[in-house]
């Protein structure tokens, strides 16, 4: 592993005290602190902090804040304010090395490897597994365990969407039956003046398509407008840069693909029962 690699100090326990600034501050090793931690502890670049691995502060060490960073949004830590410090790996190992363990014999949790050819990831992982017993190598895509919960949430949201669509379809059908019934006389007159059922049905279908199309566009505009609001609310609520709602082209296409045929079909299905009746019966008051 390259020296200077920074990793997150997860095991750091609540021992973070601003220390007095001195002439030797510039000699101190530097750390990065998360924006949330900097805000809560009022830390700025150049502040000197003391870090320890336990609450009693044994083996504490001073560091200078070299920078403040915005943590990479982590879906699996939603709701937890990321108060984190990033140290250079050698500094972290110096702090966490158990007494009696020589330098270089410590454990590290993971090593990230950038391959010349990313397509070789699976083969490289297999080679490492074969050559280094006790080490598990995984391509990044498979190592991202945090994606799991969100795949489940995706399925959950899909199930909710299906129920909503079913409810909307039922209501839509009820509504179109009533609206079609309102135009019973008009349809009866059209039949009496000689328009074939197919011609009237085509007209109704066209009308249904237009109404459903306009409705779908209105829905998309509403979704795009509310996207910003929802993201801003949840980003404020959880103090995160995560994006919660994104109306992508695929999402928009899926919505239109479902909404327009559904609306048009509801109109046709509701009209069909009416059109099967005779023109005279329909026109009769």
């Amino acid at each position: 592993m390259k020296r200077g690699t920074v990793i997150r100090l997860i095991a750091l326990i609540g021992w973070l005290l601003p220390a007095t600034a001195g002439a030797q501050d510039t000699q101190l090793p530097t750390v990065l602190v998360s924006r949330q931690l900097a805000e809560s502890e009022r830390l700025t670049v150049g502040s000197v902090v003391r870090l320890a691995t336990d609450a009693s502060g044994t083996r504490s060490q001073e560091f200078r804040v070299g920078g403040i960073y915005e943590p990479t949004p982590d879906p699996s830590r939603l709701g937890q304010v990321p108060r984190a410090v990033r140290l250079h790996l050698p500094d972290l190992l110096d702090m966490t090395r158990p007494v009696g363990i020589p330098a270089g014999a410590e454990y590290i949790s993971s090593v990230n490897v950038a391959l010349v050819n990313p397509d070789d990831a699976h083969q490289f992982a297999r080679d490492v597994d074969a050559r280094l017993p006790g080490v598990v190598a995984l391509p990044s895509g498979e190592a991202a365990g945090s994606a799991g919960p969100f795949r489940v949430l995706e399925r959950f949201h899909l199930a909710i969407a299906i129920v909503t669509i079913v409810a909307a379809t039922v209501f839509l059908l009820a509504l179109t039956i009533m609206l079609v019934d309102e135009r019973r006389e008009t349809v009866g007159v059209l039949r009496l003046i000689g328009l074939p059922v197919r011609r009237i049905l085509a007209q109704i279908l066209l009308e249904g398509l237009m109404v459903a199309g306009v409705g779908a566009i209105f829905g998309l505009v509403l979704a795009v407008l509310s996207e910003q609001l929802i993201n801003q609310f949840f980003q404020w609520r959880y103090d995160t840069a995560l994006v919660f709602v994104r109306v992508t082209r695929d999402v928009a296409l899926t919505c239109v693909t479902i909404a327009v045929p559904l609306g048009a079909s509801a109109t046709v299905v509701a009209s069909w029962a009416l059109l099967r009746r005779g023109g005279l019966r329909l026109a009769r008051r």
Binding site: V163, A167, F171, L173, A174, I177
Partner: peptide, 17 residues
């Protein structure tokens, strides 16, 4: 009956959610 049944079914689906 048709429109009443559809209305009731719609409420049932929304109510379930």
């Amino acid at each position: 009956p048709a429109r009443a049944a559809l209305g009731v079914l719609g409420v049932a689906a929304v109510g379930a959610l």
